[in-house]
């Protein structure tokens, strides 16, 4: 039988990820949206939920996924985050091209558009750095990845919280808070600030 701790941790993660998605799936707004808009919107929710898994995997906090295996899964989930953001942008672009072009060129009237686009670029930078990590040295890699991820997470949370969309307000706030706490915790546990000190990178 699985230990209670294992069941509790995985149960909490499953709930934190699935409850916001299930609540969004019951949103009345969906009945007035075409499939491509719905897919685009949910891709955004999936990327936020996947962002919660990332620090937990890196820190080896999930039972059955100690650090080494956790980091392998982290790469897979990282790919999921990037791909779901691409689907998010593509889906919304098809739904309303001028609104997406305004967002990408930072000329939209809404602050959340700018936050979302900054988050996307920070995420791409974090993922791009991961592809080049063997070539840039461990300190640069850790400091760079942590910096890009911090900015990506903060702007993603601002983006999500300012939007009036299909997500429930409470479940969205809880998910955002958990993403912030998990990201902060793993950076503290890994003493990430050490990578910013010492010899030149």
């Amino acid at each position: 039988m699985l230990p209670a701790r294992t069941i509790l941790i995985w149960g909490c993660l499953a709930a934190a990820v699935s409850v916001p998605i299930l609540i969004a799936a019951r949103s009345p707004l969906l009945q007035w949206r075409q499939p491509i808009y719905i897919v685009g919107g949910f891709a955004g929710i999936v990327s936020l939920a996947a962002m919660l898994c990332q620090p937990l995997l890196v820190g080896g906090y999930l039972p059955g996924l100690p650090t080494r295996r956790g980091r392998r899964v982290h790469r897979v989930v990282g790919t999921v985050v990037v791909l779901s953001v691409v689907v998010h942008v593509a889906g919304l672009w098809i739904t309303s091209p001028p609104d997406m072009i305004d967002a990408l060129t930072f000329s939209a009237p809404t602050a959340f558009s700018a936050f979302g686009v900054i988050s996307m670029w920070m995420l791409f930078a974090a993922a791009g750095l991961a592809l080049a990590r063997r070539r840039i040295g461990i300190r640069s890699w850790r400091a760079g990845h942590a910096s890009f991820v911090s900015l990506a997470v903060l702007t993603a949370v601002a983006h999500a919280m300012l939007i009036e969309g299909t997500m429930g307000m409470v479940s969205k706030a809880v998910l955002c808070l958990l993403v912030l706490i998990a990201t902060g915790k793993v950076m503290a546990d890994l003493k990430i600030w050490r990578s910013f000190r010492g010899r030149n990178m």
Binding site: W32, R33, D99, T110, L162, E164
Partner: peptide, 8 residues
């Protein structure tokens, strides 16, 4: 009017 692109 219903919310679209984040705002009604």
């Amino acid at each position: 009017i219903v919310p679209a692109f984040g705002q009604p």
